[in-house]
Design a protein around this nucleic acid. Structure first.
Lengths: 336, 336
DNA sequence: CTGAAAGCGCTTACAG
DNA sequence: CTGAAAGCGCTTACAG
């Protein structure tokens, strides 16, 4: 039999009101009374029912997190960052997946409507338009996380993709490369243009120009990286470096280069983006632009909790800096 | 203003009881009445408050999931498998991390006590003894998932590690290797002995014996794999194959072999365990024993939901078969 | 077939 | 400093 506040009150010979007061550290409770109540609480191991407290207070102390799926390699760090702050503030994290498509999203919408959580972290939300508007109208506090999708109506946290693209170009140029190829993300992704523009900026700043025939659209997969390189090798202009817009694509680039007998970084240098776990274990290890994924998750969670605490939403998007991680795919002196 | 059951009842000119009845598809509601109520529900977009329903029914329709952290590379698939079944049954998934140590576990224990969920999925639970016993006594339905920790008091889902170890040995022997080295997991992990025993079984069945000097204890990291190989190369007997007890360790093995000028699979063949995303992208790609992680997550979730539905817990642990995935680290004919 | 009432386990004015 | 009562939004015997 679960012990309830009524039971505690009875044993401490006070009213439920008083128990509630000491539970919530309200002032105006006689010291001796408070001690007695606390003793009973300790003795019985009483913990208030989350559901009952939630109903009475109109609040769940839970935040929802909608992710596109649980298998993207960059997701773990982001989730961990968010989980750490959410948990440390005593909130629960209710995880939902858009993985099963429309059915999953409908399920999810029901939970939103059922007030199953106080606020929402949206990671690269799919099918943005439709659901996002509904969310906004629902008044539920929402924070977007990620670089693919942005929406003016919501606060968001992402990485500095333009700066990252520029860093990639500068590093490549710095190692003496001049004919730079790029395998981008899908055009539809918000970060693709940023990474490309940053890259282009740095190239022009060095007095060079990008050959448009060396820019291939990828789709965040190693297969697309492989295909891009094979295509370039078969019928494109020569190149001595490749900037892939993510590490998975870069892994495909590496594989295609290896399969066709090119040496890395001897013949071609390769830079990726993200710094997922895999990046350190390719052969050679991958130089990459690191997205601060854990910090992104943490920042988003912090913003959301601040809003739940009554803070005003930040004006613009929050952009965290990326950093260059140099490994063997661009230089032989990587200290590995 | 959120619409409540009272509001629906008023508009449909019935009692809350009747609305509740049609909500829960009880029989004995006049067809016309039901239609009218449903119309109001549709028109208002009414969704019952999860918290209120939970309090009234004594049930949350949420399952908790405690993971050691969110960054292990094998976790994504497992989580996805669990999330798919949990979500498809209309349950929520409340994720907790043991990542921040004792403080996180205490937070977590509070949620257990607060009845924040109906059942619990425990992934490789840390600090098993103490918390597990408390959980068991609490009467909360629990299912364990993973291969490192097992506990007789709980139903569990894992992979067939012994069979996996045997498959690794048979494959290696089949490619003509005879001097087999092993980098195991930590001795404390339950699966380490199983993988080693299975490996040993198959070796003996082939009329050979394992050289104990070629068995090194690792710790599930690429660093430990690298160190093991360097040690073997420096002062151990010769070997022409390595079975690493997980893919991360195998990646370290590959790196050490490469750094010391050994060719894979020419000089040494390498087999890993798990088949994490990284395995397909090492150079050469890693032959490995695949754990059915997604199926494991799904099976555990299914068992848990079945118990919540009143089913009796299964007697023994549920053991899912592993499978051999052949790639370039053991054979040049990998079709890659 | 339908509704009034009690109850789930808390919190929060309101009185004293 | 303390308690009785109402209320959060549902469900569920119990009566009719």
């Amino acid at each position: 039999m679960r012990v309830t506040i009524a039971e505690v009150a009875r044993r401490a010979r006070v009213s439920k009101t008083t128990v509630s007061r000491v539970l919530n550290n309200k002032a105006d409770v006689d010291a001796a009374t408070a001690v007695r109540v606390r003793e009973v609480i300790a003795a019985t191991g009483y913990i208030p029912s989350a559901g009952a407290v939630g109903l009475a207070r109109g609040v769940t102390r839970t935040v929802g997190m909608l992710v596109p799926g649980l298998t993207p390699p960059w997701l773990g760090e982001l989730l961990q960052g968010a989980a750490d702050v959410v948990e440390s503030k005593g909130y629960g994290l209710l995880l939902s997946t858009a993985h099963r498509g429309a059915a999953a999203l409908d399920e999810f919408s029901r939970r939103v409507s059922a007030k199953a959580f106080d606020g929402l972290l949206l990671v690269e939300p799919p099918d943005a338009l439709r659901h996002l508007r509904v969310l906004h109208d629902s008044g539920l506090p929402v924070v977007l996380v990620g670089d693919r999708v942005r929406h003016p109506a919501f606060p968001s946290v992402g990485a500095d993709n333009r700066q990252g693209g520029a860093a990639a170009a500068r590093h490549l140029l710095g190692t003496g490369r001049t004919r730079l190829a790029t395998v981008t993300g899908p055009r539809a992704a918000g970060c693709t243009a940023d990474r490309l523009n940053g890259f282009n900026d740095a190239v022009r700043a060095a007095g060079l120009t990008l050959d448009p025939r060396l820019i291939i659209e990828g789709e965040w997969t190693s297969e697309s990286g492989e295909a891009a390189i094979r295509q370039l090798l078969a019928s494109g202009p020569a190149f001595d470096a490749v900037f892939a817009h993510d590490d998975l694509t870069a892994a495909g680039v590496l594989a295609a280069l290896h399969a066709t007998g090119r040496s890395v970084p001897g013949d071609v240098a390769v830079v990726g983006f993200d710094d997922i776990p895999l990046a350190a274990h390719t052969q050679p290890p991958l130089t990459t632009i690191r997205r601060p994924l854990r910090d992104m998750g943490a920042a988003a969670a912090q913003q959301l909790l601040a809003r739940l605490g009554g803070a005003a939403p930040p004006e613009g998007p929050t952009i965290l800096p990326t950093s260059l991680v140099v490994r063997g795919s661009t230089t032989v002196h990587d200290g590995h």
